[in-house]
């Protein structure tokens, strides 16, 4: 009897400890971007028990004002964190909040890309480290016009159909060591929010070296800009004689190309 009660007390104590951990730092920090949507984002993207902290080591670069809401450049860099395993990029006020999710499987934990925004919004990157903690960084982007409910230029022209999925790419040696890969893929990237134009976008891209060893896995969502351009950095230890990209869009069209130096 005594012992049972003791175990129960112990369980209770450990629950309290877990509780104390889960409500810990992140959730008590005020949102540095002061967005009324942060609470919803927290609920939508992270389990209640997950530890989520705001962390300045997560760098999100984007222009403070974006005149062209259809093509807003964003770069995420989580290189200052010890071991980033997964990065989710989202925009609080976009009609489709999720933008891109990537796993740096050998590449530098960062990605450059372009997005469509409907209105002024925080653009955030949540970086999961090996200990399971999510580190969130971000920046406000002010737009002067909506880009999400406009059909892509591509969907209006028959020309892209011939070139759908076509990849252009180039590899640069970096002064600081390693290499940079930039690639551009022909794709209309329609959000499905423009009347009569169904969602049509790249869902998956896998970047590997020529031997097939994984470097970066990218999961794309509707807000990526038309004919998306990506910048990926490869650390010196993982540079290879050549690279390869493969993937598919939400209609099952395959993307596959060799990236030659």
């Amino acid at each position: 009897m005594h012992r049972v009660r003791g175990v129960a007390a112990l369980l209770l104590a450990s629950c309290l400890t877990v509780g104390a951990v889960q409500a810990a730092p992140g959730d008590r920090q005020a949102d540095p971007l002061d967005s009324p949507r942060w609470g919803d984002m927290r609920k939508e993207f992270f389990p209640a028990k997950a530890r989520v902290v705001f962390d300045q080591r997560v760098k999100v670069s984007a222009p403070l004002t974006a005149e062209n809401a259809l093509n807003v450049p964003v770069s995420v860099d989580a290189g200052a964190l010890p071991d980033a395993t997964e990065v989710l990029v989202f925009a609080d006020f976009n009609p489709i909040t999720r933008i891109v999710r990537f796993r740096p499987e050998g590449a530098h934990p960062g990605l450059g890309f372009r997005i469509k925004l409907q209105q002024s919004t925080p653009v955030r990157a949540a970086v999961k480290t090996r200990d399971g903690v999510w580190h969130v960084g971000g920046t406000w982007v002010n737009t002067t016009g909506g880009g999400c409910t406009l059909p892509s230029a591509g969907s209006a022209s028959p020309e892209w159909q011939k070139r759908l999925g076509e990849v252009s790419s180039r590899v640069w040696e970096r002064k600081e060591g390693g290499e940079r890969i930039r690639l551009r893929i022909i794709h209309p990237e329609d959000t499905g929010l423009a009347a009569g134009v169904p969602a049509f976008y790249i869902q998956e891209l896998k970047l590997t070296d020529e031997q097939g060893a994984p470097l970066m896995h990218i999961e794309g969502f509707e807000p990526l800009a038309e004919n998306p351009v990506f910048s990926v950095d490869i650390p010196a230890a993982r540079t290879a004689a050549g690279y390869r990209v493969s993937g598919r869009d939400n209609n099952g069209n395959a993307i596959s190309a060799v990236i030659e130096k």
Binding site: N71, S168, R170, L183, R184, R244, S246, V258, E260
Partner: peptide, 19 residues
């Protein structure tokens, strides 16, 4: 924002060998 995409496209214009 207005002009860089065209320069970029030119720099990337060596199309990757489609596999």
């Amino acid at each position: 924002g207005q002009l860089y995409p065209a320069y970029e496209q030119q720099a990337l214009s060596r199309p990757g060998r489609n596999a």
